[in-house]
């Protein structure tokens, strides 16, 4: 708990271009993942609804692996997820799990498998029903440096916004308003 607090205070801002890079990659992954129907490539919850490209808003959770050391730090994420329309069914929901590259380098594939297993437990324990990709190639590292976050894409309103967890009450309302149209 103590270490977790320290991590939480070490938040830093990230450059905007990383968001754009991440969006591109995510959309690419989204398309290819839908084609594979959840088989292989490290995505969990293969049985979750097909969430290919659509005009609906897309919500992408950036889940910081460090948050697993302090599950209460993820309360805001979980509360937000369960507030989404139909718990995610009315909009596209994806997740990307980011982790410290140096840890992966030290322990190699074993560490990735550990992450995968913990993520599975987290998804099961919280009854989360959206696909999550483990960021093995650290493409999303910049987005997860400040801890877990959510990125909202609205293709109709041409909107891309990122919010860090924990969300403030005003931010929750702001995101929810996108789903009201």
């Amino acid at each position: 708990m103590i270490e977790c607090r320290l991590v939480m205070f070490e938040k830093r801002e990230k450059p905007l271009f990383l968001v754009l890079v991440a969006v591109s990659i995510l959309l690419f992954l989204s398309g290819s993942q839908a084609a594979e129907k959840g088989k292989g490539s490290g995505a969990l919850n293969p049985g979750s609804p097909d969430q290919g490209l659509s005009p609906h808003p897309l919500v992408v959770f950036i889940i910081d692996f460090d948050s697993f050391m302090c599950l209460t730090c993820l309360e805001s994420l979980l509360d937000f997820y369960h507030q989404l329309p139909g718990a995610g069914k009315g909009c596209g929901v994806w997740g990307v799990l980011v982790f410290d590259a140096s840890l992966g380098n030290q322990r190699g594939n074993t560490f990735t498998r550990i992450i995968e297993k913990k993520l599975k437990g987290f998804m099961q324990g919280n009854r989360l029903q959206f696909p999550v990709v483990i960021d093995r190639w650290h493409l999303f590292d910049g987005l997860g440096k400040a801890g877990s976050a959510v990125i909202v894409f609205d293709p109709v309103k041409r909107l891309v916004k990122k919010y860090d967890f924990p969300l403030r009450p005003g931010q929750v309302q702001e995101i929810m308003s996108l789903f009201e149209d």
């Binding site: 697993f68 297993k117 437990g121 987290f122």
Partner: peptide, 9 residues
């Protein structure tokens, strides 16, 4: 182990 669902953390 890394392959079962007995313990997650």
């Amino acid at each position: 182990s890394l392959d079962d669902d007995l313990i997650f953390q």
